[in-house]
Simulated scan of single mutants.
Amino acid sequence: MTLPTDSQVQILLVEDEAVLALDLCDTLEADGYRVVGTARSGPRALSLFQQHRVDLVLCDIHIQGEWDGIETATRLQAERPVPLIYLTAHADQATLERALRTGPAAYLTKPATMASLRAAIILALQRFAEPAPAPAPDRDLHTRDTILQLGDHVFIKDNYQFVRIPLRDIQVLEADNTYTTLITTARKYALRLSLGAVLERLRFPALVRVHRSFALNIEQVEAFSEAEATVAGQLVPLGRQYKENFLQQFQPR
């Protein structure tokens, strides 16, 4: 399934070896990521970074031009913080020490395996994003899926990658035993979390619990009655004990 652009993790690739860059682009995009551009030099990388939303930078240390990869990464980070993964064929101590000063999430030696790159991307996003608070100790600690929050977006673990979801796009949460289905304008995601745990981790005030098994985005309610509300054409039941809280979301005029 091809994800909408807004949901894909967007990667800037800084690599001056054309064959390797093409191979990395194909592999990353096959894995569901979107490569916003490939830069062979530092100034080109900076230009692409300024033009696009970039969620992660994958950067070779030894590239063409006056700026090497470390100098390039430093200039990108000065624009705005972003998760950074270095690729290099040279792992000498002096280079490593310079690279570490830029705070990379990973430092991979070429040729990097796809398994190690996948793991590095997930860890980079996980370390960079602001994690939602953990729930009180219960069985969710052993079965929980990862939800990472970054501003008004969250990253949801979907197979082996994180998918970016604007909080405003969440329509309904529907619980089924130990799973909760997160329904957005684009697709559905199954989370191995209770409904209460998902609501606690998302920290999005517009998501209001209206039933033992349902929560909805109050900003996307199209209509409601005594028994149910409609969100994007879906009927969501209003539980008796949650109805008062639901009605309090509306200001009488």
Rank of each mutant, 00 (worst) to 15 (best):
L182M: 04
Q93H: 11
V36G: 11
A73G: 10
D23T: 08
Q251W: 10
A119F: 00
R53K: 13
L199Y: 06
R53F: 10
D23Y: 07
L58G: 08
E200G: 14
A232C: 05
D16H: 00
Y33V: 06
I165V: 10
A21F: 09
I70D: 09
L28C: 10
L202R: 15
H211L: 05
E219I: 11
T180N: 04
A132E: 01
L148V: 12
V172S: 11
V14A: 07
T95H: 00
V210C: 09
P83R: 08
L28V: 12
Q234N: 06
A229N: 02
L150I: 06
Q126G: 04
E79F: 08
V198L: 06
L199F: 03
A105R: 06
A30F: 00
S213K: 05
L195G: 14
P166M: 03
P252T: 13
S213M: 02
W67A: 04
V14I: 12
D55G: 08
L238E: 06
L28K: 12
V210M: 02
Y179P: 00
Q234H: 06
P166R: 04
P205C: 06
V208H: 11
A124W: 12
D6C: 03
G65L: 04
A197P: 07
Y86F: 15
T5V: 06
T184Y: 04
L193G: 13
D68G: 02
A227C: 02
T185I: 03
N217L: 02
R118P: 02
T2H: 10
R253K: 10
M1T: 13
I85D: 13
E15I: 12
L22H: 09
S7A: 02
L193A: 10
Q234Y: 01
P166C: 02
T5I: 03
G32N: 11
L87P: 03
E130C: 13
E130S: 14
G196M: 10
L24R: 12
F204R: 11
M1W: 09
L182R: 00
T2L: 11
T72G: 07
A175L: 09
V221Q: 08
L13T: 06
L100Q: 15
A94Y: 07
V19G: 05
A94I: 05
L195C: 12
F250S: 08
I70H: 12
G42H: 11
F128H: 15
I147L: 15
E79D: 05
H62G: 02
L216R: 01
D16K: 08
D16R: 08
A78Y: 09
Y242L: 02
G42V: 09
K243P: 01
D145Q: 13
T230M: 09
P137I: 10
S116Y: 14
V208W: 10
L195E: 14
R203P: 03
T181P: 00
I63R: 09
V208M: 09
L76F: 07
D16N: 13
Q171N: 11
L108F: 07
T143L: 09
Q220G: 04
R240N: 04
Q149V: 15
A215S: 07
